[in-house]
Amino acid sequence: MADLEIKNLKVAVEDKTILNGVNLHIKDGEVHALMGPNGTGKSTLSETIMGNPRYTITDGQILLNGKDITKMSVDQRARAGVFLAMQYPREVAGVSNANFIHSAMNARSNGKPVPVLKFLQDLQHNMKFLDIPDEYADRGLNEDFSGGEKKRNEILQMMMLKPSMAILDEIDSGLDIDALKVVAKGINAMRSDKFSCLMVTHYQRLLNYVVPDFVHVMVDGKIVKDGGPELAKELEKTGYEGFEKEAEKG
């Protein structure tokens, strides 16, 4: 289970304020979508929850199941259940995809190693589910993967690591429609009362396949509107212009 509550979060990068007091509450089993124009702070919020050292919290709290995680290191947050599917996954060719995922699972299993056979069975099953060819298990981590393959591999890692709170930062960018459907299938397979999710996206398209419980619009480092799935559809028609003008007046 995961209950993520963000209170009045203010974040700066190199003295430039990006988030101006974000409030957001994601409860157990809920899927939220965070939408908004470019450069508005969506990725900053995602990275700050994960603990990317580039971002400095100047005010506010991030509570995971009631506990402030802002002082925790990146790996501690991950072991506490937070997962970030990154916009630009890194390539680390010296470790194989399978070994990396297995190491990550072992790191999260409180000193009890995950049995290799069970791991391989799960890996094979999930790779098949996501239409990832077998040989990708032995390739270097994201090594020479295409943009779409990297995104798929992020979802594979999520399915294997089973986080309680997943943040998906533009998981739909650069995907063709078939790949988008596969990625959506992966996210939907995770949905349960033990899995909460924040999907960051520009477009309504992903939300046709993964229907969120709540939609938030972020402009200029603040969440300016909350609603249900219908809000995303409305945005598709009207765009963000109205919200941006509001923010400028604001």
Binding site: G51, N52, V92, S103
Partner: peptide, 16 residues
């Protein structure tokens, strides 16, 4: 950062 974000410890990540 990418390796750490999966829960791997700093020591293990540096080894990788």
């Amino acid at each position: 950062y990418y390796l750490l974000s999966r829960g791997i410890t700093m020591e293990q990540a540096k080894k990788i």
